[in-house]
Amino acid sequence: MQFFQKFAVLATLLLCTGAYAGPPKEIFWEDLIPKGHVQIDTQAQANHEGSEQNWVQPDLDAPVVKELDGQSVSLPGFVVPLEGDSEVITEFLLVPYFGACIHVPPPPPNQIVHVTIKGGVPIESLYDAIVVTGVISTETWSGEIAQVGYKMKAVGVAPFEL
């Protein structure tokens, strides 16, 4: 009986994640920048002193990689919560480094992913990197914090392991 329960859980996970078509493609932040595009390094430019200009999001026209649209991917990063409660979050920005959009200027839009996850997910610490798995799209999103170049409907979130 235990075998059939495990099989049912595995089959459900495979169908929900689209894994029946193969595992999600593991991508990294540089994969979100089209080949040949010279990206502005906002992390190197950021400092906590000086003018308001320091907090303006750069390169709002940064291009996205259109070939990623509709693909099942996994991407590591850090969470900037948008919606949820003290238990779980249902909507967040995934960013390449801790503090992006909060403590330093936001990265260009092609370096931010707007993530939604049905039912929410607990996030233990915003200081810890996670890996988000889901279907990515090249749909834009704008909020008070930043303009975003990608959206993702997540099916899973896990701690990032080196």
Results as ranks from 00 to 15, higher is better:
Asp61Thr: 10
Leu32Asp: 00
Gly18Val: 11
Gln39Arg: 10
Lys153Phe: 05
Glu30Trp: 01
Asn54Gln: 11
Ala11Asn: 01
Gly149His: 03
Pro106Trp: 00
Val157Cys: 03
Gly70Val: 14
Trp55Gln: 11
Gly84Lys: 01
Ile33Lys: 02
Val38Ser: 06
Ala158Asn: 11
Glu144Arg: 04
Gly70Thr: 13
Glu52Pro: 00
Leu60Asn: 14
Pro96Met: 09
Asp31Val: 03
Gly84Trp: 05
Leu60Cys: 09
Val115Ser: 03
Glu124Gly: 04
Asp61Trp: 03
Val56Ile: 14
Thr138Met: 11
Glu30Leu: 05
Leu14Cys: 03
His37Ser: 11
Val148Thr: 09
Lys25Asn: 07
Ala129Lys: 14
Asp41Glu: 08
Val115Lys: 06
Leu126Pro: 00
Pro108Lys: 06
Ile130Asp: 00
Phe160Asn: 14
Glu144Pro: 00
Pro109Leu: 07
Val95His: 01
Ile33Cys: 00
Ile130Ser: 03
His37Ile: 06
Ile145Asp: 08
Gln45Trp: 04
Thr133Gly: 13
Met1Glu: 08
Gly77Leu: 09
Val9Pro: 00
Leu93Thr: 01
Ile102Arg: 04
Ser125Asp: 14
Pro122Val: 09
Gln53Gly: 07
Tyr150Gly: 13
Glu124Leu: 13
Leu68Asp: 15
Val38Thr: 14
Ile123Gln: 04
Gly70Ile: 14
Ser51Thr: 15
Val148Arg: 02
Lys6Gln: 10
Gln45Glu: 15
Gln111Arg: 14
Thr42Ile: 04
Thr140Arg: 07
Asp59Lys: 02
Gly18Gln: 13
Gly120Trp: 08
Thr12Lys: 08
Gly50Thr: 06
Val80Asp: 02
Glu91Ala: 15
Lys153Cys: 09
Thr116Asp: 12
Ala146Asn: 04
Pro58Met: 06
Leu10Asn: 02
Ile117Val: 13
Cys16Phe: 15
Ser72Tyr: 04
Met1Asp: 09
Phe4Ser: 10
Ala129Leu: 13
Val95Thr: 10
Leu15His: 10
Pro58Asn: 01
Tyr20Asp: 00
Val38Arg: 13
Gln71Ile: 08
Ala100Gly: 08
Ala62Ser: 15
Gln57Gly: 06
Val121Gly: 02
Ile117Cys: 09
Ile136Gly: 12
Ile130Met: 10
Pro122Phe: 09
Ala154Asn: 12
Ser125Gly: 06
Gln2Pro: 00
Leu75Trp: 05
His48Gly: 11
Lys66Val: 13
Leu15Asn: 10
Ala46Met: 04
Val148Asn: 09
Pro108Ser: 15
Ile130Trp: 00
Thr12Gly: 10
Gly119Arg: 14
Leu32Lys: 06
Gln43His: 05
Gly50His: 11
Gly119Asp: 13
Gln5Thr: 03
Asn110Arg: 12
Gly36Ile: 05
Gln39Trp: 04
Gln2Gly: 08
Gly143Ser: 12
Tyr20Ser: 05
Thr140Ala: 06
Gln111Gly: 01
Met152His: 12
Gly134Phe: 07
